[in-house]
Simulated assay, not measured.
Amino acid sequence: MPARLPARHWWWLALLLCVGSVAANLPAIRPVPHVDLARFMGTWYLVGGIPTRYEREAWNAVETYTLRRDGSIRTTLTFNHGRPDGPRKHIEAPARVRPGTGNAVWDVRVFGPMKAQYVVAWLRDDYSLMVVARDARDYAWVFARSHDVAQADLERARQRLRGLGYDLSKWRTVPHTDTTLADNR
């Protein structure tokens, strides 16, 4: 006889099935053709997007990518929660590049065996700004090498997300203060 799932797991299973069925009706997000991982690694400022529940009140958000010897990538997100001087939150998640994707699609292990899709959907030629998306169109992120992004660039990134089928009513610009970099060292 199969083991029974605890009640709290049924909710997650139902959510995953719903997201999966919605994603099945949408075209896959097309990744950029190639990401130079060595150039891509380092510090990226989260400047906006459609956040997860964990990120909804983030200030001074910085994500750092570190390529490991085994080919995996350590992703580290740090931010202040709720206000510029709020408590620091920190999460690390290992990622693996999906073979055959030009290094542009990753599987990020967010907790336990659960993996989240990470698609580099747009990357500026100079690696200064990027859009990360998911086939489910539930979350998306705009990252930059500086927290000071021109409003026109941010609006172009937003329009890229709209073109990918995202609901921009869920958009949030991530506020940054001058202490962002100092707080993340």
Rank of each mutant, 00 (worst) to 15 (best):
Q151W: 04
S146T: 15
A3F: 10
E55N: 12
V32G: 03
P51E: 00
L37K: 12
W141N: 03
R98A: 06
M41E: 01
P2N: 03
H147Y: 15
D148Q: 15
N80V: 00
R98I: 11
A38E: 13
D126N: 13
F79Y: 15
A3H: 11
G82W: 09
R185M: 10
A133F: 07
L15K: 14
V108C: 04
L13G: 04
V119T: 10
H34R: 15
W10M: 13
L13V: 14
L46S: 10
L161Y: 09
A28D: 13
E63G: 05
R134G: 07
T101Q: 05
R160Y: 06
L16C: 12
A144S: 14
G49I: 01
G163C: 07
H34Q: 14
Q151R: 13
R124Q: 12
D167A: 13
H81A: 15
G49P: 08
H90E: 12
T78D: 09
A150M: 03
T75L: 14
P99F: 06
A38P: 05
G100W: 06
G48D: 00
N25F: 09
D85F: 10
V35M: 08
D178C: 08
L16Q: 10
Y127K: 10
R172G: 02
F143G: 09
P99N: 05
H90C: 14
Y45E: 01
T52F: 11
V120D: 00
L77E: 03
N80G: 06
A150P: 09
W59V: 05
R30E: 13
E55W: 12
G49S: 03
L123R: 12
L154G: 01
R145H: 09
E155K: 02
D125K: 15
G49D: 00
A152K: 12
V97Q: 00
T64H: 11
P99W: 06
G112L: 11
V108G: 03
R53M: 07
A23L: 02
S72C: 11
D126M: 08
V62Q: 08
V110T: 14
